[in-house]
């Protein structure tokens, strides 16, 4: 496994349990993930699919680790753009830790092989998704509703 390609950290004024619920509940996901949502039972070894608003499969993979409300590891591959899919698998690790009364959420991606397109594609999206998630959990509303 190569070193992480990026690491994103945000602090959210809420509890780790609420962050976990927002990361794993498809109805909540749609609110901050520009309509996209996951289909899985979140158990280690289970398949995981990320779908666009219209139901097309965006990404797919498998749940590698699931430890509510602390740690989620997903084997993750793009499924909708051939040249990105060709770069193969990545591993996304999400960790939630209590930190001075708030929740610290860290997202990191590691590519199993080489390539830059997958990382380019996901690294642009995460800061907006995380901002939206923070707004949603702290204020009940998101800043961006559509992927403009």
């Amino acid at each position: 496994m190569s070193k992480p390609s990026f690491v994103y950290v945000t602090y959210i004024r809420t509890t780790p349990e609420k962050v976990w619920a927002a990361l794993t509940d498809p109805v909540t996901m749609r609110k901050y993930w520009f309509g996209a949502f996951a289909e899985t039972d979140w158990k280690p070894g289970s398949p995981w699919t990320l779908k666009f608003d219209d139901g097309r499969v965006a990404d797919a993979g498998e749940i590698l680790e699931s430890e509510p409300p602390k740690r989620l590891v997903i084997r993750w591959r793009n499924e909708w753009k051939e040249e990105i899919k060709a770069e193969g698998w990545s591993r996304c690790t999400m960790t939630i830790e209590p930190y001075q009364g708030v929740a610290q959420l860290t997202i990191r991606h590691e590519l199993e092989g080489d390539g830059t397109k997958f990382i380019e594609a996901v690294s642009g999206g995460w800061p907006r998704i995380l901002s939206n998630l923070k707004s949603l959990l702290e204020t009940g509303a998101v800043a961006y509703e559509t992927k403009a």
């Binding site: 992480p4 950290v9 995380l130 707004s135």
Partner: peptide
């Protein structure tokens, strides 16, 4: 060490 752009994004927002 990784550049974390999330706080800068929040300022923009």
């Amino acid at each position: 060490h990784y550049l974390n752009p999330v706080p800068i994004h929040e300022i923009g927002e």
